[in-house]
Design a protein around this nucleic acid. Structure first.
Lengths: 210, 210
DNA sequence: ACCTGAACACCGTTCAAGT
DNA sequence: ACCTGAACACCGTTCAAGT
């Protein structure tokens, strides 16, 4: 199981991206329209702006109006590109996660411990996004599906890591959940860097004890 | 450290309850007013109604208007008893937790494992209240304070349990956080009853391994 | 296809007024 | 002290209309 296998689990937005019927005639029509140079660029711009705002202020404190204003469009324009606010959140989450995966791929040679710690640092860098996911799960089934897929992905990765570290499969599957919940706990609650490392060390020590 | 020691950490709403200046003359005035038989009863009624609704539908999907309607008062009446919606949440949380503590006090003779499992069952019984707390922490400093107090309380309880089970203090403090995060993870994500027990067993096995 | 102004329904909260 | 009707500011979302 490589990181590339996983990123296709993660990006079902290929469906979303493939919704437009991009024929040659339409591209000509767009070229004539002076309001928008590139339609796909606009969507990307909205996602980037939304990512910055959601990372900084979280889901609830970021209004659609503010995203729109920062992207230089009218408030309702976002609804041409996204079904609703939760869809914007999902697009941002996909960006954040695939970015994190890309950075993680660099660290293949590091210790398990080191990789876990940098992973935590990365997610922490995305503000309250993970908490936001948990609170939106009850409101949007789409977010719920995303969250489930994300968890199974991280679980599979963790299991394979643990099996590599000589934990037998049965226990690895339980330990993986255990590890993930500890990581989520660390992310959901404020911790000093040293304290965080202690807890991770303790967890790994408990899991990898022979 | 007994459960009774703890419940005074938990109930700073004695401050809140003590705000009224209940002189004898006022009680007479209230008796003359036919609209409300007992003012404290009204507040309690609001809290009970809010507790039912928040447990059932969660924080976001329960509006102040709905709470008021169920309590038989005008929407803004709640603001005489509570500063804002987060204050209502905190009052409900205090009720839920002290109720859980009372029920836990019954189970002194049970196994650690059994007590943990019934605790999880109790909290799960309160719907998404714990997730709601985590998502409101970023919006209300009062909720944030409540959350911190709650965590230190549960941590102290867990540490003393672990020390009783022959874990040395240094490790018990780390293991306590570990255990709590696993419990929170179990609460935040759907699990079959059997799966939940397996994860708890695995965690306790890892923590209590000699 | 892409974008907008104007409106809608709903929300938490406030205020002036009643008893 | 306790309660209310009416209003406010804000929110996500929709719709009819423009290009």
């Amino acid at each position: 199981m490589t990181f590339k296998n996983v990123s296709c689990i993660l990006n079902p937005n290929q469906q979303i991206d493939a919704t437009g019927h991009q024929s040659a005639s339409q591209e000509l029509a767009l070229a004539r329209n002076k309001r928008h140079l590139e339609p796909k660029v606009k969507k990307e711009e909205i996602e980037l702006v939304a990512m910055a705002l959601l990372k900084e202020k979280g889901y609830d404190k970021t209004s659609m109006a503010e995203i729109a204003r920062s992207a230089g469009v009218a408030a309702n324009t976002i609804y041409w590109y996204f079904e609703n606010k939760d869809d914007v959140l999902i697009a941002v989450l996909n960006r954040v996660v695939s970015q994190a995966i890309a950075e993680m791929a660099t660290l293949r040679e590091q210790t398990f411990r080191a990789r876990v710690l940098t992973l935590i640092g990365q997610i922490e860098n995305s503000g309250s996004l993970m908490t936001d996911v948990h609170s939106r799960v009850n409101h949007s089934t789409k977010v719920q599906v995303w969250h489930e897929q994300f968890h199974t992905m991280v679980e599979q990765l963790s299991v394979s890591e643990l099996v590599n570290a000589e934990v037998c499969l049965d226990e690895a599957q339980l330990d993986a959940k255990l590890l993930i919940y500890v990581i989520e706990g660390l992310l959901a609650h404020p911790h000093k860097l040293q304290e965080r490392e202690q807890i991770i060390d303790q967890t790994l020590k408990r899991i990898l004890a022979k």
